[in-house]
């Protein structure tokens, strides 16, 4: 399971990296989205995977009994997802505005701030 998930993680990262290196700024947004998924899956997998057994106590219990999935990576991912959403929303609108202002979605025409 982890081996295959590792491959999935790798492919998601690769696809994300590939997309953020395109010339189109719209693809950049999609790439950032893919990288977000990749990061979440990465933390999820590397924090070990446990089929079923969510870290929720049945009513009446006052401790969580083995076996259970480690809740901490899940909390991390939840935080990361939410933060990622905020960033993604902002970046999307930023790209839209850049597109409107520059008049193209071609990255090669957005190099003026680096010209000495």
């Amino acid at each position: 399971m982890e081996v295959l998930l590792a491959v999935v993680v790798g492919i998601l990262y690769a696809a994300g990296f590939y997309m953020i290196m395109r010339r189109s700024i719209v693809k950049l947004i999609l790439g950032l989205g893919l990288l977000g998924h990749a990061s979440n899956m990465f933390i999820f997998t590397i924090g070990r995977v446990m089929r079923g057994n969510p870290p929720v106590m049945p009513h009446g219990h006052d401790v969580l009994t083995q076996p259970y999935a480690d809740p901490l990576p899940q909390a991390f991912i939840l935080t990361a997802i939410v933060i990622g959403f905020g960033v993604q929303a902002f970046a999307t609108v930023l790209v839209k505005r850049a597109y409107q202002t520059v008049g193209t979605d071609d990255f090669d025409q957005m190099i003026s701030t680096d010209q000495p």
């Binding site: 969510p54 929720v56 106590m57 009513h59 939840l78 939410v82």
Partner: peptide, 8 residues
Amino acid sequence: HSEPGGGF
């Protein structure tokens, strides 16, 4: 607090 869900 007791089941999946929450403020978010």
